[in-house]
């Protein structure tokens, strides 16, 4: 599903050049669950952003579902992303002015779904994730765990083939964190490919494969032995 060849990303501040990613070669198969680990600033989130096509690499190649992403136009990337990729962020990134229901519905609006179809799908999902009693509330009125559940719902509402999660439990207590991880685990079992950035060994233990990043380079890659 994902193949990168020599992906490199450099950030230029006024007089300092920071190499965020150095020649990353990564392969993710359909149905895989990859955890990307490493210390702060090692380039985990940058890698995730490039995989999610919301940032560009400076050199190297990136193939998604067989297409070379690095050569695509902005519009083509948007199309590819909205049809195939869902995002979960550490700080949830829900839109404050929209209700729970509207937040979840938003990707379907951008995909051009008909209203009736949207209603059906969102209703099904809020039932499934047990947030239907809160669907008319605004994000600020929810606890962190509830917010992240909404964020997961929003990420999977369009049934993406790939789910990118950036520290999904980083802002949650252990109980809520486990809840979210179980949710991701279930999704993976049902066929969703997941790439997750995390600090937490425990979260990583849910994945099938762990990639270790250090100073923008993959230093080792191992199959999760716990599985």
């Amino acid at each position: 599903m994902i193949i990168t060849e020599g992906l490199t990303k450099v950030f230029e501040a006024e007089d300092v050049e920071t190499v965020a990613l150095k020649s990353i070669n990564l392969k993710v198969e359909q149905g895989d669950f990859v955890a990307v680990m490493g210390p702060s600033g090692c380039g985990k989130t940058t890698l995730l952003n490039i995989l999610g096509m919301i940032d560009d690499s400076d050199s190297g190649r990136y193939y998604f579902l067989g297409k070379e992403v690095t050569r695509l136009s902005g519009k083509a990337k948007t199309d590819l992303r909205k049809n195939n990729i869902g995002f979960i962020f550490q700080n949830f990134n829900l839109i404050d002015d929209l209700t729970v229901w509207e937040n979840i519905e938003l990707p379907l609006v951008y995909l051009g779904w008909k209203k009736k179809a949207r209603r059906q799908r969102v209703n099904q999902l809020v039932e499934q994730l047990q947030i239907s009693h809160r669907k008319n509330l605004f994000p600020v009125q929810l606890s962190g765990g509830q917010q992240q559940r909404v964020a997961v719902a929003r990420a999977i509402v369009a049934r993406p083939a790939l789910l990118l999660a950036d520290e999904p439990t980083g802002n949650l207590d252990s109980m809520h964190g486990e809840e979210v991880m179980n949710l991701l685990n279930d999704l993976n079992k049902n066929g969703t490919t997941i790439v997750m950035v995390t600090h937490s060994q425990r979260d990583a233990s849910f994945s099938r494969r762990i990639v270790h990043l250090f100073d923008g380079q993959i230093i080792n890659e191992n199959i999760n032995k716990l599985l």
Binding site: I54, N93, L94, L106, P107
Partner: peptide, 9 residues
């Protein structure tokens, strides 16, 4: 940013 990530043109 969020809207763009979610596919908004």
């Amino acid at each position: 940013g969020i809207r763009k990530v979610l596919g908004g043109s």
